[in-house]
Design a protein around this nucleic acid. Structure first.
Lengths: 148, 148
DNA sequence: ATTGATTTTTGGAATCATTCCAATTTACTG
DNA sequence: CAGTAAATTGGAATGATTCCAAAAATCAAT
């Protein structure tokens, strides 16, 4: 069991309550695991890490919890081609950069007005609920953080 | 059998030759099918349409041909979550808009400088080979073309 | 054209991330 | 504390895609 930072715990409980969902140990641990190492792990990788802090958790539960957190808006689901989905506990708007050399994904923080700018290129009548911007290529070496 | 427009046929043969690949009836028909109705079909849907013009073609071949065309740069592969991949015979740079109401995907043509602008937001040292911009939401009704 | 070497196509089996299921356990309400 | 609804669990099922080995088709050189 790991302890979720008080602030995160609060955000989690609120987000769950808003959707009429219950706060459970499993959901808390999955969220804690994602916040601890922010490297965009797959469901399977989350399962591995979760088992270390809660050995009896099941893979099905990991999938359920991840889906719940996505629905709550606390985390994001990333997809590259049809590879296993990866998860990102960054709720702000940002782009993603996949480094082809090592498979790592970086969060690229954008200037605050950027998403609006992008939305404005849409022709009259198109209403975007979600905007996804993602890059693939090579990241500079010696980057330590996954959030840029 | 459908006839591939002369210009497209030429582009296909050239693109294949450049990669040391052979021109085959199957590849030609798959490309023709994609150009005929530009609605971003899945591999399965391409298979249905291909069988109408070439009844003996196999699903495996459809997958093979689509992959080849993607590798040649003649078509693009689109992915939404982990739904079946869809294919787009538009080789220019453009964004995609998925209409949640009916599942249709629209090509959104961008101002020519836009992709460069987007690339420029990347921090020093990040080299993007591919940029993907996609929207999800509601498109205006009564749109006839899939290319905007 | 025919041969030979190399690709490509083909049908069916295999893969594997994810979803589904029914039974048990857990969390909330009164 | 009891009752009810939601969540967790392990295992089975799903389904798009890939893999495989054999047959067919393409291209280059004769």
């Amino acid at each position: 069991m790991i302890t979720l930072p008080a602030k995160a715990k609060e955000a989690l409980d609120q987000a769950l309550a808003k959707g009429g969902m219950r706060s459970t140990r499993q959901r808390e641990q999955i969220y804690a695991v994602l916040l601890k190492k922010r490297d965009h792990p797959s469901a399977d990788e989350v399962y591995s890490r979760a088992k270390e802090v809660m050995p009896t958790i099941s893979l099905a539960t990991v999938y359920n919890c991840l889906e719940t957190l996505v629905d709550c808006g606390l985390i994001k689901k990333l997809n590259y081609e049809r590879e296993p989905s990866r998860f990102c506990p960054n709720d702000g708007e940002h782009a993603h950069f996949l480094d082809e050399a090592n498979g790592r994904v970086y969060d690229i923080l954008l200037p605050p007005e950027f998403h609006d700018t992008i939305r404005n290129i849409l022709p009259e009548g198109f209403e975007a609920k979600k905007v996804k911007l993602s890059f693939t290529g090579y990241a500079p070496k010696n980057i330590d953080s996954n959030v840029i």
